[in-house]
Design a protein around this nucleic acid. Structure first.
Length: 231
DNA sequence: TCATTAAGATGTA
DNA sequence: TACATCTTAATGA
């Protein structure tokens, strides 16, 4: 379990402009919790009682359709605030957050949100920047869904995860959390069969290497070409 | 071009 | 073993 220390928050955008004492105050009101892979931090439609900061791990944010299908809206990386329904003028969570890998998050009662944004210089600004970035990402995905062929959508999704969570390895850049074919199909609006076929084909061409729940992009440039203007 | 169906292989708890 | 994950082929919209 991570030790709660001021240095934990000092470098993160929502807190970077604050003084040590202020950070200590904020930390003293936070709870820290660990989540196993697959565990929900909160669920769509539930009362938004707390807001969170991801310290370690990765999250999937999913929404369910009327038909019961699950759409992966976006991923959350360490250092990001999430569950900040208050910033959206909501009192319920708009989506479900699932730990994609073992994760650690801090949380505060939502009642502190207004106090934080009022009291702490830069906190609100940075939070809205986060929201803006996410909205942009969702918009991009939406446009892709409507206009791009499946192979390009899947290539874009893999690239996005690589950019957000990639780690260097000898063979290439590995996506930093467990990810299944089903997960990718939930991100791109296709089937796991199609994703499986595409990844197999890319593996044969040396673009990616994958074992179960792990994907390494061995040729990022080629993947960019597959995602881009002309495939 | 892509979803669906089906059937089998392989990894994991 | 039971279950999840992944692969491949065939078929049809």
């Amino acid at each position: 379990m991570a030790k709660l220390d001021e240095s934990l928050l000092a470098d993160l955008p929502p807190f970077s402009r604050l003084e040590r004492g202020q950070i200590r105050d904020i930390l003293s009101q936070a709870s820290s919790r660990r989540y196993d892979e697959g565990m929900a931090i909160f669920s769509e439609g539930h009362d938004a009682e707390r807001f969170y900061l991801l310290l370690d791990g990765y999250l999937r944010v999913i929404r369910s359709t009327e038909g019961g299908e699950e759409i992966i809206v976006l991923h959350i990386a360490p250092g990001q605030l999430f569950g900040i329904a208050r910033a959206l003028q909501r009192d319920t969570y708009p989506a479900t957050a699932i730990a994609a890998a073992e994760s650690i998050a801090l949380s505060w009662p939502m009642t502190l949100w207004d106090e934080f944004t009022k009291t702490y210089e830069g906190f609100a600004t940075e939070s809205y920047k986060t929201l803006g970035r996410r909205l942009g990402e969702i918009q991009t995905t939406l446009t892709e869904m409507a206009t791009q062929a499946v192979e390009k959508r899947v290539a874009c999704a893999v690239l996005r995860m690589m950019n957000q969570s990639g780690r260097r390895t000898e063979d290439g850049i590995e996506i930093g959390f467990p990810i299944t074919r089903q997960n990718i199909s939930d991100m791109t609006g296709t089937t796991l069969h199609t994703v499986s076929r595409l990844l197999s084909a890319w593996e044969k061409d040396g673009v990616v290497a994958s074992r179960r729940k792990h994907i390494i992009v061995t040729n990022p440039h080629e993947l960019v070409l597959l995602s881009g203007a002309q495939g």
